[in-house]
């Protein structure tokens, strides 16, 4: 498949990137207003602050970030296989999804964190009574289970929106990197689509798929780090636990990102191709 981008594709990319940046801008303005309100209450933290705290507490748990992004990534890889191998390139559903993915992957991870706070927590008022019964706490045990559940779903949705498109995109790129002649050579030997996929395409593309998964997970950790960072910056006075988490998440994100680049670098983008 041709990897050269045409003029039309570049144009499309510019439009999509612009949309992504507009969304980012809106998110920033929104967050600034929210935080201003929270500060204006002076001492009495707004419900958003409590929710943010709940979110941070949840994010404190490394395993939650890890397992959530893993589920999102695995689902994303499955989606990519379906899109790339079963739907024809002209299928309108595939084109729609690919365009959506182009928008979603163009949005920086911080915007997702902010969106998570703004959109998914806009239902905070309904939980206000429950929230006010409990003091602001970083301890996950102290957060009412209702809020915890809301936060959990909100976070899961954010992860799906943020991690999955990237996983889909990277997996699709990996699958496309398997040269067409290799598939053809397997098909003329009477291999079924499933056999071509499992015996040729996946073994060849495996490193790239793995690299894409790491990149996606790195993104999840970057977002988690940013959320924890925002919380630390605004709502805690004493340095300590939270900033430690911030650094931990950021390092995990960095390590995963470097690992993913190394995978591609060591095996070479062309090693999968027939030489």
């Amino acid at each position: 498949m041709n990897s050269m981008t045409t003029r039309a594709e570049r144009k499309q990319k510019i439009v999509l990137q612009s949309i992504a940046f507009i969304i980012l801008g809106i998110a920033f303005v929104g967050l600034w207003h929210e935080l201003k309100d929270a500060r204006a209450t002076g001492g009495q933290p707004a419900s958003e602050a409590i929710l943010l705290s709940a979110l941070s507490s949840l994010l404190n748990n490394l395993y939650i970030v890890l397992s959530m992004s893993l589920v999102a990534i695995l689902f994303g890889i499955a989606c990519a296989f379906y899109l790339e191998e079963w739907l024809p390139a002209t299928n309108w559903i595939r084109r729609l999804i690919e365009n959506l993915i182009a928008i979603l992957t163009g949005i920086p991870s911080i915007a997702y964190g902010i969106l998570a706070i703004l959109i998914f927590f806009s239902y905070a008022d309904t939980l206000k009574e429950a929230i006010e019964a409990f003091p602001l706490s970083e301890n996950i045990e102290a957060i009412p289970s209702q809020i915890e559940t809301t936060v959990f779903y909100a976070e899961a949705l954010t992860f799906i929106l943020m991690v999955m498109p990237l996983a889909i995109k990277k997996t699709q790129e990996a699958l496309r990197s398997v040269a067409t002649p290799i598939r053809e050579a397997a098909y003329v030997l009477g291999a079924s689509q499933w056999q071509v996929l499992t015996r040729q395409v996946v073994p060849i593309a495996f490193n790239r798929i793995l690299a894409g998964g790491c990149r996606s997970m790195s993104r999840a950790f970057a977002m988690a780090a940013l959320l924890v960072g925002i919380y630390t910056w605004h709502y805690t006075t004493e340095p300590g636990g939270m900033s430690g988490r911030f650094i931990l998440f950021l390092s995990v994100a960095l390590v995963l990102s470097i690992f993913s680049s190394t995978l591609i670098w060591v095996h070479g983008p062309d090693s999968a191709q027939h030489s």
Partner: peptide, 25 residues
């Protein structure tokens, strides 16, 4: 049987290349 103009070795061992079709069968 089909032999294409440009040789494409499947990225497998020589043995597995030849055994690919019988195994698929």
């Amino acid at each position: 049987g089909m032999v294409l103009p440009l040789p494409v070795g499947l990225p497998l061992s020589i043995y597995d290349n030849v055994a690919f079709a019988p195994r698929a069968a």
